[in-house]
């Protein structure tokens, strides 16, 4: 939806530490989606990956809060990468 020419949609799991990306969608079931939405991880929101390593939980900044996302869920967050 919000794709421009040089952007591509990727799962959050491939984003490396320090990058700022825009959430474009959430895959997975309603329950997982609900938990993410509750903490402000929603399409259109800019998030910053503070710490992100394979098989570990990701630490991201959303607005003014820091949110930890378990590895299983990291793959369900879709983001636009420049």
């Amino acid at each position: 939806m919000r794709l421009s020419m040089q952007q591509s949609t990727v799962p959050l799991s491939v984003v490396s530490s320090g990058e700022r990306v825009k959430v474009s969608g959430i895959a997975g079931g309603a329950n997982a989606r609900k938990k993410l939405l509750d903490l402000g991880i929603r399409p259109g929101e800019m998030i910053e990956v503070i710490s992100g390593h394979k098989n570990h939980p990701f630490l991201v900044r959303v607005g003014d809060s820091r949110v930890m996302i378990g590895w299983g869920m990291v793959e369900k967050v879709l983001v636009d990468q420049n």
């Binding site: 903490l39 939980p57 820091r66 949110v67 996302i69 299983g72």
Partner: peptide
Amino acid sequence: GDPSSFVMEL
């Protein structure tokens, strides 16, 4: 099944 995959605020 997997442990409940979590999202939590720090």
